[in-house]
Design a protein around this nucleic acid. Structure first.
Length: 944
DNA sequence: CGGATCGAC
DNA sequence: CTATGTCGATCCG
């Protein structure tokens, strides 16, 4: 304990009398050190409000938490770790009757009056009142209707699908599944770093007065983010400030200061680049890293201790630097490095020095988790801000992981197929980056809420959605994502837009337009870009220009015309708008620049609420409007441009010829060969010899898959299938068998897609049309799946996510109350193997088990822990069998950073709970059975 | 290609 | 009183 180590496994208990007595505590938790955490992470990272704790000679460290950690009798498995700084902020608030005991209390946890937050109902009510009747609301309703219409269309389409079509689709999709499965790459370690409530955190850091208050960053009209205090009131990003004020009258709204955030972001990036020089920043507060190489290098580093970190000096430095310029920051950084190598002798002759280094020593190991902890630690040291992180084999998963333990936490998905699938199993699709509000709603109409449901319905989805969409769905449900970080390519467009109070005079509009063009031109010149096209739009009117443009005058000349068109089109009435923007796109690539081709686009949006939708001037109007500027008839514009393009492409890389052709390079062909080889290998490996035909349900044994496929085709063509939609539910047997069955045919996506349309058109093409020359199929395929950085989504149902992952990795399932729980860092339990000699108990300890209350004589805390584990396990199982009823899931909105206006209230839906699962689940349980089933699985079953 | 829409920060 | 600004991707006609 000299090191002030706090933390450990937390058991529910209440077994210990509180020395302070008389405080309002929701419960007492019992901390049993020695489970392996301490050896890994003495005093690591940081912020943890709302904790009380003391050291008990016999029982170790005891925490008491007053932050609504309702356990409901389910085992609570959690680690609290503190940095030395945090320790210093803790106050001794009472005497302990235990020898050596101390009672700690953190300063910032008091939930003073007015800080209680609001419950969801109240929040929704307030939002609704502030919203209803507004033009925004009407618009929102309209959009909602549009979505509903899309859904209706989709459902109609679904009705027309026959069982046969579905079956066929199933087979084809499953072929793809198998290929995808083959291409699964778990060899990379991708990290997603996400700063916690970034803007708000920066503001709080720089103005301590804000620290304890609910604040939001932004303006009265729109907030960018809020701190965690404010989130309790339902105040969150993308919410207008005036509504936030209604939710939380005490809210302090801080104006945005991008310069500052950029500076901080730069500091963070400096750290990140040490771990992956090619890391990919996503906005100011997020980044992806591929630390695969770093991990390899690190294995060769000196044993066990990599770094000393001098907490004192860096903290001092940071404090002093807070308001200084970037330059001095950098100087400070280089002159007093945070880290230095472990070669410094730890046991120095000088006892004082030794003491110092010990005090401020932090050790990080070699694992990915340790590296990420180190990164987060260094970020915190340098910026006084916390970050959350996710570690996974690809970017999509990493992104989702970083949400799991937010804020100030991290989570890892081990690089194993099963781990990935487990993670996804109950994960609501909305959490997946790329699935937004609309997609969520559409899928929900099909009964799809979780990722495993997404997998089950893959055949149906392939018939209802575009190829890009359903393939994306498939990737998601298999947990596939890009495993490498693409360098951010050149920018493709640039734009500026502004909203304003309604404006309807032509002069104003022109002057604004000019202003926009000026701004844009300035930005443009900063980046030294040249352009190709000019567009302009009413609600996006665009035009393309031959000559290249990059100055205000040039852009304005084009934009003016387009604006003029719009104004004229509604004359003599004034054009009513409340948003205008100008965009340029079609930049020249580096090579193209030589040719001085330029282009810009610009656009203008009609005011959304102004309801001026009738103005759709279309081509005719624009054609009339060709008087000035480049002054050539419209038709010839395109012709010239096309001609220029052709010219260009002939002169440059042959790959670029006609834009859309998938281009083949050596790499993808090589990959194709490789894939094919894998498939054939698999075929030869006799994985599956007996096979149940999904059509006739007869067992077919064959070692020739071609034959099997032929059988199925025959069945499909010949058999008259009775029931229509039944099978989407009932195909268990067929599905599982089929799932990873090697397929011989080399049908490609195009064909798949084509068949789909054929099927839908009702033409009963035979399925055995497989051998159209499709040599490039796999090329295309690999190309498609290998790109896609898989963009981000955020947050956040902590309780759900947490439950999910704890189920997998803990010895015991966990129920975590959602409120405030994110104030704690949860640490994974993958390091349990590393034993801790550090915390061996004294020889003849007698410990009281918090579960059974019996006294346990132990020689070590480890064995005591084992007893507690067993005890808890027993009681847990008992409890779960008694009342199968799981407490209803409640969806808090705590962490959801991006909930759009209206839907905010509608998000609180429960995912269906007791739904049967086939597909993914089935195959999982099969492979689980293959492994030895242990207690974890038993409990999982109980939870079902 | 042009325009609308989605999704993300 | 008051509902962002920018960007890329995709879908559809």
């Amino acid at each position: 304990m000299q090191h002030g180590v706090l933390g450990g496994v937390v058991y529910p208990g209440g077994c210990l009398p509180l020395p302070g007595g008389g405080r309002h505590l929701d419960f007492v938790v019992f901390v049993a050190p020695g489970a392996g955490f301490f050896s890994v992470a003495p005093m690591r990272l940081s912020v943890c409000p709302a904790l009380l704790g003391f050291w008990h000679e016999k029982c170790g460290l005891v925490f008491t938490a007053s932050c609504q950690l309702h356990l409901r009798g389910i085992k609570f498995y959690k680690t609290y770790l503190f940095s030395r700084n945090t320790m210093k902020n803790m106050k001794k608030v009472g005497d302990s009757s235990c020898s050596d005991g101390f009672l700690l209390r953190m300063g910032l946890n008091d939930n003073k009056a007015g800080m209680q937050g609001l419950d969801k109902e109240k929040i929704n009510k307030i939002i609704m009142e502030a919203t209803k009747g507004s033009r925004f609301y009407e618009n929102e309703l309209k959009k909602d209707q549009q979505v509903n219409q899309r859904i209706e269309k989709m459902m109609q389409l679904k009705e027309k699908i026959t069982a046969q079509q579905l079956l066929k689709a199933q087979l084809q999709v499953d072929k793809l599944v198998m290929e995808l499965e083959q291409s699964r790459n778990l060899n990379n370690t991708i990290v997603h770093i996400d700063m916690d409530a970034f803007y708000a955190a920066v503001e709080m850091r720089d103005n301590p007065e804000l620290k304890e208050k609910p604040i939001a960053v932004g303006s009265m009209s729109m907030l960018s983010t809020s701190n965690y205090h404010a989130r309790r009131f339902g105040v969150r990003a993308a919410m207008p400030g005036f509504i936030a004020k209604k939710l939380c009258p005490h809210l302090t709204i801080v104006p945005l200061n991008f310069e500052k955030y950029g500076k901080v972001s730069k500091e963070v990036r400096e750290i990140l680049s040490e771990y992956d020089p090619n890391f990919m920043p996503m906005g100011l507060d997020e980044a992806y890293l591929n630390i695969t190489e770093h991990l390899e290098e690190r294995q060769n580093w000196p044993e066990n201790r990599r770094f000393f970190i001098n907490t004192e000096s860096t903290t001092e430095k940071d404090k002093g630097d807070v308001n200084m310029s970037a330059k001095s920051d950098k100087d400070g950084y280089s002159s007093s490095p945070v880290l230095f190598e472990d070669n410094t002798p730890l046991m120095d002759d000088n006892p004082e020095q030794r003491h110092q280094s010990e005090e401020n020593l932090v050790v990080f190991g070699n694992s990915a988790e340790e590296v990420v902890k180190e990164i987060r630690f260094r970020i915190e040291q340098k910026t006084q801000l916390t970050a959350s992180a996710g570690i996974a084999p690809n970017t999509m998963l990493a992104k989702m992981c970083s949400d799991c333990n937010k804020p100030n936490g991290q989570y890892k998905i081990p690089p194993e197929r099963q781990a990935v699938l487990d993670f996804l199993k109950d994960l609501p699709i909305r959490k997946v980056p790329g699935i937004g509000k609309v997609t969520e709603k559409m899928l929900k109409a099909l009964g799809i809420v979780t990722c495993s449901e997404l997998y089950q319905q893959r055949a149906l989805l392939s018939l209802l959605f575009s190829e890009a969409s359903w393939r994306n769905f498939l990737d998601i449900s298999l947990g596939l994502g890009s495993t490498h970080l693409e360098k951010d390519g050149e920018r493709k467009s640039m734009s500026t837009e502004r909203t304003f109070s309604e404006m309807n005079t032509a002069e104003d509009q022109y002057s604004l337009c000019r202003e926009l063009c000026r701004d844009l031109a300035q930005e443009l010149q900063k980046e030294g870009l040249k352009l190709k096209n000019v567009n302009f739009e009413v609600k996006t009117r665009a035009s393309t220009v031959l000559s290249s443009v990059s100055t205000e005058e040039e852009i304005f000349a084009v934009a003016k015309d387009l604006l003029g068109t719009e104004i004229d089109s509604v004359a003599p009435h004034p054009l009513r708008i409340r948003l205008m923007g100008v965009r340029v796109s079609g930049f020249l690539s580096e090579e193209e620049k030589k040719y001085q081709q330029k282009s810009i686009t610009s656009f203008l949006k009609s005011g959304r609420e102004v309801g001026f939708l009738s103005l759709q001037p279309g081509m005719s109007n624009q054609e009339c409007f060709t008087k000035n500027s480049e002054a050539s008839p419209r038709g010839s514009f395109f012709d010239k441009k096309r001609a220029a393009r052709q010219l260009n492409s002939e002169n440059f890389s042959p790959n670029e010829t006609i834009g859309k052709q998938p281009f083949h390079d050596r790499k993808s062909s090589a990959k194709f060969v490789e894939e094919t080889k894998k498939v054939t290998d698999l075929q030869n490996s006799n994985v599956c010899k007996i096979f149940t035909c999904p059509v006739c349900f007869e067992e077919q044994s064959s070692n020739n898959l071609e034959e099997l496929n032929r059988h199925i085709d025959e069945c499909l063509d010949g058999t008259c299938i009775k029931d229509t939609v039944e099978m989407s539910k009932n195909n268990n047997s067929g599905e599982t068998t089929l799932n990873f069955l090697p397929q011989v045919k080399n049908e490609n996506v195009d064909e798949c897609q084509k068949n789909k349309t054929d099927q839908l058109a009702g033409s009963d093409q035979s399925a055995s049309t497989s051998n159209k020359s499709t040599s490039n199929s796999t090329d295309k395929f690999t190309q498609i799946i290998s790109d896609k950085p898989n963009r981000e989504r955020q947050p956040s149902n902590l309780s759900d996510m947490a439950r999910n992952m704890y189920m997998k990795q803990c010895l015991f399932p966990t129920r975590i109350s959602q409120d405030n729980e994110d104030h704690f860092e949860k640490t994974e339990h993958t390091e349990e193997t590393s034993s801790s000699s550090f915390f061996e108990a004294k020889e003849d300890s007698v410990l009281v088990c918090p579960v059974c209350n019996s006294e346990q004589k132990t020689t070590s805390l480890v064995s005591f822990n084992r007893h507690v584990d067993v005890c808890l396990n027993k009681s847990l199982i008992q409890e779960l069998t008694e009342k199968k009823d799981f407490p209803a899931k409640t969806y808090n909105m705590e962490n959801s950073d991006r909930v759009g206006g209206l839907s905010r209230g509608q998000q609180c839906t429960n995912p269906s709970q007791g739904t049967k699962r086939s597909g993914l689940t089935t195959s999982q349980s099969v492979s689980k059975k293959a492994k030895s089933s242990n207690s974890k699985h038993t409990i999982e079953k109980f939870l079902k």
